[in-house]
Every structure is written in structure tokens, then in C-alpha cells.
Design a protein around this nucleic acid. Sequence first.
DNA 1: TCGTATAGTTAAGCCCGTTTAACTATCAAG
DNA 2: CTTGATAGTTAAACGGGCTTAACTATACGA
Lengths: 159, 159
Amino acid sequence: MHGKRENLIEQLNQFAGLTMHINMVHNMQFMQEHDLSFTHLNSLLFIHRAGCTNINCLADHLGVTKAAVSQMVDRLVDSDLISREEDPLDRRSKLICLSKDGEGLVQKAFLTRRRWVPDLAASLTKAQEEQACQIFEIMNEKLKEIQEGLDPEISRNHL
Amino acid sequence: MHGKRENLIEQLNQFAGLTMHINMVHNMQFMQEHDLSFTHLNSLLFIHRAGCTNINCLADHLGVTKAAVSQMVDRLVDSDLISREEDPLDRRSKLICLSKDGEGLVQKAFLTRRRWVPDLAASLTKAQEEQACQIFEIMNEKLKEIQEGLDPEISRNHL
DNA sequence: TCGTATAGTTAAGCCCGTTTAACTATCAAG
DNA sequence: CTTGATAGTTAAACGGGCTTAACTATACGA
């Protein structure tokens, strides 16, 4: 046989595909419920990851002009989801952060996963449960590494 | 200790969160490269899952009016990503299918996962590899179940 | 066969998100 | 202090994507 490796890759790929689909459907619902566009949700999640960002970073991340972001930020500030204030370290720059409401919304978005993850965990036997813990611990570390290289705007900003 | 179960749920949740984020970033890139909106990508993926659909189903799935879909379909047909033809079984209805190009595009979208999934698999030992195969096999079955209930438009259409 | 329900299209109009271009304010280097 | 780069804003204009409303064409039940 040509190794378990290929089989594992297949399984993992399928797993990723399925979870991604479920997530997409949930996100769609979430966006409609809260009257958010994909760009809005994307921005809120980005700001959440960054902790705090500025117009330039966000523009890079979204792949649009600063002008576009400036205007979008207007709207998100109007809806009380984010705050925009002068950066004391560089008064040209604005600090964009999640407001209390915005943070709450992001947390609520994360909560949608809690609807199906426990079901998944429940499908394993006690013995597998233990193995799975170890395995996911390792893979999560790896995923974090992969993720590091994925938000260059954030790391660049924190130099 | 209060059981491995909670720990597993935590790990799984983190895993889902990380993969989702990676996927989102890749999808964003993909959409920009191919000049697709979120709705477009969403529609193509939906049609792919359904095999073939019609205006009504797609409208239900996207949560917009039939008129909107009819117009979006115009554009996707113009770009040669999908085909629209009369349903021989009900001549009021149109069959919306992926074209060769559209199918290729969807496959290309799936391929983005192939960039990081092998890395993930490589982070496990031989022993864990085997365990992981079993575990993912089980969880994938469960995920398929969960997914079943997630595209009501598709099942409804195939009654 | 008539009436009604269903599938989809078309047109008018609206708003959102985008771009470009011109602008202000601040910083940093010489 | 001046010069040039950088951060962001504003305004005008455009297109996409959405809605509503009116329409055509087909199906189906009484």
C-alpha cells in the first residue's frame, strides 16, 4: 500500500471542506441577521485579530483603496461597531478598534460554531477522544504557524 | 478533572476557527484573482453541490429575490461560468448548471486547500497518522449528516 | 376549459461600495 | 525650516446588486 499519508490527507481535505461549507452557511445567516456585508464581517474579524488597526492596514487586508475604507469605517462607526480615534504616537494615523458592541458581535459570530462542534466531539469513543485531543493539539500548533504568515498586514503593523 | 470531552471540544473549536480563517483568506484572494463577488462564489459552490438547480432554489439559498438571481445569472452566463436552459420536465423552469469553465473554477477553488492540508498531515507521527485517519473518518461521517440539514433548498428540489 | 398558481424576465429606481483626484494634516530628514 | 513622504478625508461619479412591480409563459386542478 502507498501509505496512510495520502489517506490522511484525503480525510483532512474532506474535513476542511465540510467545515468550511458549514461555516459559510452559518456566516451567511449571521450576516443577513445582522445586516452585515461580507466586507464588514471580514473587517470586524480582522480588527479582532489585530486588536487594533488603522486605515492603511485594513485597506491592504481588504485589497481596496484607503478612500473606500475611510468611508466604510464611517458607516461602521455610525453603527457603533468600531471606534476611530487619533493615534497619539502618530497623529496622522487613526486607531480603529472594536467597540463593546463590535466585540460582542464577533463573539457571537464565533458562537455559531458551538452549535455543531459538540456534536462532532460526541461522535468519538472515549479512547478516541483522548487520541483526538493530542492530535488536534499538534495540528492546532501547526495551523497557528500557517496563520502567522497569513495576515502580513498585522505583523507589519506591529514592527 | 472534568473529563477530556470539554478539552476536545475546545481543541476542535480552535481547529475549526483556524481552518475557517485560513479558508477565508484564501477565498478572498481567489475572489479577487477571478473578479468574483462573494455571492458569485457562493452561487457557484451551491450549484456544484446541487449538480443542477433553478432560479427559485438559488434565490432561496442566497436569500434574495428571484429577480435578483435572474439578473445575476445573466452575468454568470455572460462570463461562461454557468449555463441556463429550459427544463424539459417543466418548461417554466430553467436548469442552471456549471459550464466547463465554471466547474474548472470550482475545482480550482478547492485546490487552495491543497496548499496547507499536506503540511498539517506532515506534522503527525506515523502512529498518530493511523489514529487520525480513523478519527477523521468518523467525524467526516458526522459532518456529512450535519451538512445534510444545511442545504434545504437542494433536498427540497430533489423530492 | 377556465382560473389560479408557479417560474422566470424585464425595467425603473435605489443604495452601497468602489475608484480617482484633490485636499489637509502630520511626520521626518536634510 | 523646508521639502517630500505618509495617513487619512472628501467629493464626484460609476457600477453592481438589490427591490418592487408589471409582465409572459407554462402547469395544473376544478
